[in-house]
């Protein structure tokens, strides 16, 4: 694809996403789309660490939580506006990301997995018990809704455009990073730590950078959820939440940009479409994850080329049919 075509496609997609909720989509679905958007940001974030650099992390929900609490507490206790709290809370999450990145220099694989699980458990317990700051088990209430002048983002539709903006930012940043020396370095670390190092990649620096980027995106998503739900509880940011984000990443296809998006959007909307399964949905979902990892370890994304070929064939057949008619 040439530069022009790519630009045209991008403009088309953005326009479509901007207009879409205006044409008869109920507020309930817009709420789902907003959640999907927030999960896209989380999953794209986790993608830096797990998908690109190959460092396992069970802590994405913690960065989500750290960002959410930081943003909520900043606006509530210091009175800064949401617009300042959003980047600040992402930076707070980033600092914790760097901290969690440090063990990845010493241990790998299963050890790193358990360290990240431990980290997230400790974060959850601190959020839950540090009453003076986090309001403890009561949770944080009455988090202010973002405003622009006198315009309040107090409906799902209005919030949709805020989420969409941050999602586009996340996608944009991800694309730029993937196609740069930084993306190549991260990818190299996933394939072979040693080879990457010998090819001149400062693997220590880039591993920490991967964790920092993951955390930064997690923080952004956290700030968005805090001011959307206006209520927070530490227990929402638990191990299963991290596991859910990991599943989104791998079901979509890790390491790419389209994979995390497919995974996050798909797994947020799927329960709605599969409502008839009721209580069985999650159990079937669990089995689905196991089967999918067995048959399609690169995720749903690996179907895209096949799908493209199929569509192409459909078109050429049609053309041929048209031609033979003449």
């Amino acid at each position: 694809m040439g530069r022009r075509t790519r630009c045209a496609v991008a403009v088309g997609v953005v326009t479509l996403l901007a207009v879409f909720p205006l044409v008869g989509v109920g507020p309930y679905y817009i709420r789902l789309l907003n959640l999907a958007g927030i999960y896209v940001i989380l999953t794209l974030g986790l993608n830096f660490c797990v998908g690109m650099a190959g460092q396992i992390s069970y802590a994405q929900a913690s960065f989500f939580g750290i960002g959410a609490y930081a943003s909520a507490l900043l606006t509530l206790k210091t009175g800064v506006s949401f617009w300042a709290a959003l980047p600040l809370s992402a930076l707070v999450a980033l600092v914790f990301g760097v901290l969690l990145g440090l063990p990845s220099l010493k241990v790998g694989r299963y050890y790193l997995a358990i360290v990240t699980i431990g980290f997230s458990e400790i974060v959850r317990l601190v959020l839950l018990n540090w009453k003076e700051v986090t309001y403890g088990a009561e949770g944080v209430k009455n988090i202010p809704v973002p405003t622009i002048g006198t315009f309040t983002l107090n409906t799902d539709l209005r919030y949709y455009y805020l989420v969409l903006t941050i999602v586009l930012f996340a996608v944009f940043v991800s694309i730029r990073i993937v196609h740069s020396r930084i993306g190549r370095a991260l990818h190299a670390i996933r394939m072979s730590d040693l080879a990457a190092e010998v090819m001149g990649v400062n693997t220590r620096y880039y591993k920490i950078l991967a964790f920092a980027l993951s955390a930064f995106f997690g923080g952004l998503a956290g700030s968005l959820i805090a001011h959307y739900d206006t209520y927070l509880h530490a227990n929402s940011f638990n191990f299963m939440e991290s596991a859910k984000i990991l599943c989104m990443l791998f079901i979509g296809g890790s390491g790419s940009i389209e994979g995390p998006i497919i995974g996050a959007v798909g797994l947020t909307l799927l329960p709605e479409w599969l409502r008839f399964l009721k209580d069985y949905y999650m159990a079937i979902y669990g089995v689905g994850v196991v089967l999918l990892m067995g048959v399609m370890p690169s995720g749903i994304r690996s179907l895209i080329p096949q799908l493209a070929r199929f569509v192409q064939r459909l078109f050429t057949n049609k053309q041929r049919a048209v031609r033979s008619e003449h």
């Binding site: 997995a113 596991a243 990991l246 599943c247 791998f250 669990g286 994850v289 196991v290 067995g294 370890p297």
Partner: peptide, 13 residues
């Protein structure tokens, strides 16, 4: 990583 994610599926199930 595939094994790890698969184990998560098992846990959920």
């Amino acid at each position: 990583l595939t094994v790890i994610v698969s184990t998560i599926g098992v846990m959920i199930f």
